[in-house]
């Protein structure tokens, strides 16, 4: 593989890992929040996280 291809591959894996970690946090997060109780707070935190995540994810790429 050329240098460019290697760099691209690494970049792809990095992006995928970030996205997969978000999915894992949501999966285990919702179960943990329910297990610990306090559903209102848990849903509030989840909602805010999603909003923040979307704003940051879209915002940081707008200028590319």
């Amino acid at each position: 593989m050329t240098d460019r291809a290697t760099r691209l591959r690494a970049s792809n894996v990095r992006t995928a890992l970030v996205l997969a970690s978000i999915a894992l946090v949501f999966f285990f997060g919702i179960i943990a929040a329910e297990y610990m109780g306090g559903p209102t707070a848990a849903i509030g935190v989840m909602g805010s996280t999603v909003l923040l995540f979307l704003v940051v994810a879209i915002g940081r790429n707008l200028r590319k």
């Binding site: 946090v25 949501f26 999966f27 997060g29 919702i30 179960i31 329910e34 979307l54």
Partner: peptide, 28 residues
């Protein structure tokens, strides 16, 4: 795709809790 990554795990989490309620004695 961003929406899917954010919400599909939530559905998966909720049906997992249903499964444990059905078979593993939890009471979510």
């Amino acid at each position: 795709a961003y929406l899917l990554i954010a919400v599909m795990p939530v559905l998966a989490g909720s049906v997992t809790m249903l499964l444990t309620d059905r078979h593993f004695g939890t009471s979510f």
